[in-house]
Structures are given as C-alpha cells and as structure tokens.
C-alpha cells in the first residue's frame, strides 16, 4: 500500500516529462517563411540557404550565441559565403511579452529605430559589446542564475544610438516610440512559431535554446545540420 503513492508519483512525473517533450518538439507552423526585413539580413537575397535567428537583446543566452558568432566573425562570414547562406536576425521583445522584462521592449525599440536609418547591424553589435562590457563581464545578467540587470535606464539604449552616430531621427523615433507597433506585430508572429529564445530556423532544421558552453565549432554543427536539412 505504501508503494502506491511512489509509483503514482513516478507515473505522474514520467507522464509530465513525456508530454513536455512532445509539446516541445511539435510545431504546427514553420519558423521560416519569407524575409521579414532585408535590413536585418546578411548575405545575398538570392542565396540557396536561408538561416533565421529569433532573438531578444535582453535574452542572455541569445547574446552569448551572438557574441560567440561575433567573436568568430571572419570564420562566420566565410561560412555564409562558402555555403551561399542568407542570414536573418529577427529581434523581438518576447521577454517583455512573456516575462514582463521592461528593457526587452526598450532595447528592441532602439534596434528597430536604428534599422529605420539602415544601421541595424551597427546598433546590434554595439548593443552586444556594451552589454558584455557593462554587465556580462561583471557576472550580471549573463545566465539564468546570475544577478539580474537592475540599473538599466531607457537612456542606455538611446545613448547607444548616439555613440554609433545615429541622426536625430533615431532619437525622435525612440522618444516617440514609433517602432512599437512593428515590434508588437513581429513579436506576435515570433510567438506563434518560436518556443523559447534563441530560436533557430536553418533551412528545415529548427531548434530553440542555446547551451552557454558551446563554442563556435558546435555552432557550426548547427549550421551544418541546417545545410543538410534542405
């Protein structure tokens, strides 16, 4: 009789685990449709392969992935060129939408306003470098267990634009929150196809989550899996 609750517990946990794995691996809509915005892509628009990354500038593991790529920039660019890949980064505010993290939305506003000036990549890279120097290298906000980023202000994202020489129209766009509607629309689209962050759609190979111990050689395994999936 004493055994029954334990067996019942095991069955419940096992069932829950199975259900979680099934829902994690079942997607109804493909992640990759057509390009969202040419200004956030890298590579030829006629490329044979299409790789998409769903991200949020306040998502620590998205940024660890992006930093690993950024630190191996020449190898990454060579890989894209050698394999004829179009690479698109889709910035969302999924962490604001699902978690209430305020600066997820603010950072996306900065990135979208920079995009309107055709300086998305400059802003994106400046954001990654700034977050690394100001927080991650100090052990803040760089993992699920690290202390959270608390002292960030809206001005942090505005100043980033100024530092990379964006014009007054960036400031106007940012202060008037002109990009908000586009962000909301894109995040809603991302939420319907991507489970968790970062999410990757490399041709037909789709996955989400990133292990912070992965180096660029394992990231290349993901890219290879994408190339093979076509």
């Amino acid at each position: 009789m004493k055994k029954l609750p334990r067996i019942l517990g095991l069955v419940v946990v096992g069932g829950l685990l199975l259900l979680a794995i099934i829902t994690s691996t079942t997607k109804t809509t493909p992640l990759s449709e057509k390009i969202w915005d040419e200004r956030t892509t890298f590579g030829s628009l006629d490329a044979k392969n299409y790789f998409i990354v769903y991200t949020d500038l306040m998502c620590p593991y998205c940024n660890l992935y992006a930093q690993e790529v950024y630190h191996n920039e020449s190898e990454f660019e060579q890989y894209l060129a050698d394999n004829d890949i179009l690479y698109e980064v889709r910035v969302t505010d999924m962490l604001y939408d699902a978690n209430g993290i305020k600066h997820s939305q603010t950072s996306a506003e900065g990135a979208y306003c920079a995009k309107r000036e055709g300086k998305f990549w400059e802003y994106y890279h400046a954001a990654l470098t700034a977050l690394e120097e100001d927080y991650y290298n100090k052990g803040i906000g760089n993992s699920k267990t690290a202390p959270k980023i608390e002292d960030m202000t809206r001005a942090y994202w505005l100043n980033l634009g100024k530092e990379i020489g964006l014009s007054e129209s960036f400031e106007t766009c940012f202060n008037n929150r002109e990009a908000l509607e586009e962000i909301n629309k894109n995040t809603a689209k991302a939420n319907s196809v991507a489970y968790g962050l970062p999410s990757f759609a490399f041709n037909k190979y789709e996955t989400s989550g990133y292990d912070p111990t992965w180096d660029f050689s394992i990231i290349k395994e993901m890219y290879d899996a994408g190339l093979k999936s076509k």
Partner: peptide
C-alpha cells in the same frame, strides 16, 4: 527566463 525549459511550451 528564455522560455527554454521543457515545461515552457506546455
């Protein structure tokens, strides 16, 4: 935080 726990999609 990133929504990548096994439970998140469920």
């Amino acid at each position: 935080t990133c929504g990548t726990t096994l439970l998140a999609p469920l």
